[in-house]
Write a protein that binds this DNA or RNA. Sequence first.
DNA 1: CTGAAAGCGCTAACAT
DNA 2: ATGTTAGCGCTTTCAG
Lengths: 342, 342
Amino acid sequence: MNSKPVKLSDIAKRLHYSTVTISKALRNHPDIAPSTIKKIKFAAEEMGYTPNIIARNLSSRKSNTIGVVVPKIAHFFFGSMIEEIYNRALEYNYEIILTVSQENAEREKKHIQTLMAMKVEGIIISISQETKNYDIFKLVEARGIPIVFVDRVPKIDNISIVSVDDRDGAFRAIEHAIKLGYKKIAHFAGYTDINIGRERYQGFVDAMEKHGLPINPEWVCHGGFGERFGYDSFMKLYKKNNLPDLIFTVTYPVALGVYSAAKEVGLKITEDIDIICFGNAKVQSLLSPPISCVNQPTDLLAKSAMELLMSKIKNPELVGINNIKIPTELILRETCITFNKN
Amino acid sequence: MNSKPVKLSDIAKRLHYSTVTISKALRNHPDIAPSTIKKIKFAAEEMGYTPNIIARNLSSRKSNTIGVVVPKIAHFFFGSMIEEIYNRALEYNYEIILTVSQENAEREKKHIQTLMAMKVEGIIISISQETKNYDIFKLVEARGIPIVFVDRVPKIDNISIVSVDDRDGAFRAIEHAIKLGYKKIAHFAGYTDINIGRERYQGFVDAMEKHGLPINPEWVCHGGFGERFGYDSFMKLYKKNNLPDLIFTVTYPVALGVYSAAKEVGLKITEDIDIICFGNAKVQSLLSPPISCVNQPTDLLAKSAMELLMSKIKNPELVGINNIKIPTELILRETCITFNKN
DNA sequence: CTGAAAGCGCTAACAT
DNA sequence: ATGTTAGCGCTTTCAG
């Protein structure tokens, strides 16, 4: 074992061709006669040739690779998006280098630098919840590397964005609740530094204002996008004996946190306190009660992001549409479907 | 914009050093005087130097990269494992190339070939549920590329494996159920071609036999590791009016499918039919009722796999321990905790 | 259709 | 402590 890899020159020697011919034949270059292509491919196969992609990339100045940066993996939303990005990449015949920031701005920056060093041809990124310095993104652009922001995007002009219509989605959820009769509505809002937090909060505000409802500052909580935040926020209000009738959470994990907390203190969701959230998950319908939500189609997000990135890679000059909004959909299950408080 | 990247020679020219000196300085090579290192690093930073990893890898014949192949991403078990692998890689200062087989043997093979072509220094893989031809794995070994199999492993001798003690875990779950009083126990077993299916099934059989319980062939279902399989299997038994008292599912997603199906036909879990599963998920405790399960510590699995792979990379000759069994843990929640049938 | 020459950007080995 | 030489394995001109 440990046979050293066969290279082009080995095949060339064996077949009495030049390495160039072998190289071209293996890539189906029209220069080469079909018959020789067949012969060469056969020999390559037989000899167990594996191309050295590193050498190829260096030589061709093309990596055929795109970089992806996400805050998390073990999270349904990102998991599905990544999966779909991988599926698309396969179609485009591109490799993916996936990196995970773990919601950490510094790691994120380091990953982006690595991706640049690896000469990725483009980047798809969903920024971390704590990213505030956008210099690195500008640097990427300055280097001429196309970058597409998905879902969580920085506030910079003239960048390519693929996102869900957060504001509208939140608005519709809240308006739906208000029409049901809800007035005491809380919003566990995450971070408003970042677009998804900001926009969803805005949608919430829009709906409340449109219907002349006051916003109770104590019921607008900030702090994160994960379960922990949902749990803590709920407990805070609970301990103050200041629970609303309905909680609108900025993400699905936050809602999960609320479920945990409610369960812990013995409060029944729907009867004692109702909930609706932004974001979806397959298991959501198995929660008890199944939660109603604003669905974000991850497949469409991923698909659009890939398409946009590819078109930017193909036509660096072309500007075109660079802010794609994917519509959301209000999925009603068993929460927030009737108002049954006092 | 689109300034072409600065390279070593650019810095060399500016500072009147050779490229070699620059190269060494940037890598903190002891050859270079600390003062020059500082000077060079400063200039590099100022000029916005980014190393070309592709060139570096080609030249040094070392990619500093390890390849990972998993069947799925949007699945709690794999998601957490991947996340942990990424965390570890960061510590070891290695890059990860993650690929997803989507439970497809052909894709898996293609990915492995790509990883080899990318000159990864090692591979961590959890094989697809339909992988039956193991030639490619032998080829990897023959090429001298260390490979570690995690959780889902092929049946080949003398390979490095990190897995949970599936048989024992399943045995304990079933024995627990039997002691509660359960006798009519079904097993939704997935595929027994693959180790996890085979071993868990064996554990089930062991426990049943030990306690002299008959195994009803109609209650041992095969077909997959996902929700669909759980749903379908349940429905099949339901329609035949042949439901057991307890279902033991081979994975967590399969249990999810059972929950869905039971809900759909109006059967209450625990009261009408009870369940326990292999595998865990964060949201599991939020299922209603929270499911009891055999927990597989993903962090430990990932950690051990990385450690094992790293030691194989460092010492290619060294054999040492190459079959690591991680113990499981029976987590009792609200299913399968009392026997309350007729 | 095929091949010879040159070089991608970097690093290892060996001078100096 | 710094530089010279050579080459990683491939692809891109450009000749023939």
